[in-house]
């Protein structure tokens, strides 16, 4: 469905941030991109959604195709029309708009008002808590509710694929669980394909079909989520489990080993 072919992204004409990334997302799958801060996960999402340009970034090599069409040259609002929508890291709701107006703004590309009403109802069935507070100002929602609103708002554009950028960021474990349940329901009930960027590797791999691990602007590992979960390097570096299942102390992590294995 989404095919990223060996793209390179440069900021400000000098800073090379992505060094040849290829990612393949299958229809109605959950695909996850894992990696530490600064690995290039968010840049990958932005190059898909067309949001690099306002930040002076550009795709200098490779291509991004969505259902066979190239989308890497499109403006952000055109990408949304193709059915790809991004949910930003840190939620970013329209703080001064009411919850309902946030959803309306999300449905900007849908002109038929009846469809919009139906979709608002659909979002409220996913997130009943938003319905209770529909007229309230979005800025005063709790963090978890804001994340729900951000996801709901993205659903309003009737997307084929949603890209979620660290939906678990700064939320309580119970809320995270709720949100990840809804992500799975979205795939099942609304048939949306999901591209999930996460730092919480365990959680992301537990719901994903396919996983990619990024480090320093490149993909260092990829495979079915189950295999990645079982991989000893992933376990050591991302899940903090040592050999034999014991909790590993960071004092014992051999950093040279990962360099040798992945970048050498």
């Amino acid at each position: 469905m989404l095919a990223i072919n060996n793209i390179e992204v440069i900021y400000n004409n000098v800073v090379l941030v992505l060094k040849g990334i290829s990612i393949d997302v299958k229809p109605q799958s959950i695909t996850t991109i894992l990696g530490a801060n600064g690995a290039g996960k968010t840049t990958t999402l932005k190059s898909i959604s067309g949001l690099l340009k306002p930040e002076r970034g550009q795709v200098t090599r490779g291509s991004i195709e969505f259902n066979g069409e190239r989308i890497d040259k499109l403006a952000p609002h055109e990408t949304v029309k193709k059915g790809v929508v991004q949910v930003f890291e840190g939620r970013r709701v329209f703080t001064h708009l009411s919850i309902e107006d946030n959803l309306l703004a999300g449905a900007h590309i849908v002109s038929d008002m009846k469809t919009v009403r139906d979709m608002i109802d659909q979002v409220y069935t996913f997130f009943p808590r938003l319905k209770e507070r529909r007229t309230g100002q979005a800025g005063y929602l709790s963090g978890g509710e804001q994340q729900m609103l951000a996801i709901g708002r993205a659903l309003m554009s009737n997307p084929k694929m949603i890209m979620l950028d660290e939906p678990s960021l700064g939320l309580a474990p119970m809320i995270i669980e709720e949100i990840f349940d809804i992500i799975q329901r979205m795939r099942k009930e609304a048939g949306v394909t999901i591209l999930l960027v996460e730092q919480n590797a365990n959680l992301a791999l537990s719901i994903a079909d396919q996983g990619y691990v990024m480090e320093n602007g490149s993909i260092v590992m990829e495979g079915p989520a189950k295999e990645l979960l079982a991989n000893s390097d992933i376990q050591e570096f991302y899940l903090g489990i040592g050999e034999g299942g014991s909790k590993k102390s960071f004092r014992d992590v051999k950093h040279y080993r990962r360099r040798k294995r992945w970048l050498g």
Binding site: L51, V80, V85, R92, H108, A154
Partner: peptide
């Protein structure tokens, strides 16, 4: 929405 946040508005189409 545009007044509230340019970047997010773009991402909403």
């Amino acid at each position: 929405a545009v007044a509230d946040n340019h970047q997010v508005s773009m991402a909403m189409g």
